[in-house]
């Protein structure tokens, strides 16, 4: 299933890009649908105010619309979008030496909710994982965001985006997931 889907993704990307270049709006929409989450994850990995992040999101797509003709390899489109979004985020952090802390992700971990029971439903599982994720360091969140992007980024692209050597991605991923697992409630989910 996954393999089939991934093959599909690779196969029609050149056609979509070429159709969009020729002005096909549907092809453009399909490109947006495919990479919407990737761009979002890149931006949300930075602690920027929502309004700034949303501007950057739009800018990334405006840039792509104008630079479609310059994308030489359609398969690099995801990487190009991710780089564009990241560059805009870094740029924005430098404006006025901003140190923005996003307020909407602050979660009060001291506010203990009911202990996690086995057999929690999907929504509860999601919520527990999300809270645990939000408690991780910014660096871990940024890395994991890139690793859960779909379609997936190659480690090489992740390495470029984070300025991290390819060899350290695996160990860092393991360390961040270990922290996630040790967060309250999460380990219980895996024992079901």
């Amino acid at each position: 299933m996954t393999a089939r889907r991934m093959t599909g993704v690779k196969d029609d990307l050149p056609e979509l890009v070429s159709a969009a270049r020729q002005g096909d709006e549907q092809a453009w929409s399909a490109l947006v649908d495919r990479f919407a989450g990737l761009v979002w994850h890149v931006i949300r990995g930075f602690r920027l105010p929502n309004a700034v992040g949303e501007d950057i999101y739009q800018t990334a797509w405006l840039r792509l619309a104008e630079n479609l003709d310059r994308i030489r390899k359609p398969e690099s489109l995801g990487g190009w979008l991710a780089q564009t979004a990241r560059n805009e985020c870094l740029r924005s952090l430098k404006v006025g030496g901003r140190e923005n802390l996003r307020d909407d992700l602050e979660i009060d971990l001291a506010d203990d909710t009911a202990p996690v029971e086995r057999g929690v439903d999907d929504e509860e599982r999601d919520e527990i994982l999300w809270q645990a994720f939000a408690s991780l360091s910014e660096a871990c969140q940024r890395l994991l965001r890139l690793l859960i992007a779909d379609p997936p980024l190659a480690y090489e692209q992740v390495s470029d985006l984070l300025g991290m050597s390819i060899g350290s991605i695996g160990p860092t991923r393991a360390r961040c997931l270990a922290k996630l697992r040790s967060a309250r409630g999460v380990h219980l989910l895996e024992h079901e």
């Binding site: 919520e127 999300w130 859960i148």
Partner: peptide, 10 residues
């Protein structure tokens, strides 16, 4: 699982 949780919450 994290992919699903993050995409659902954010």
């Amino acid at each position: 699982e994290l992919r699903q949780a993050v995409n659902a919450a954010d």
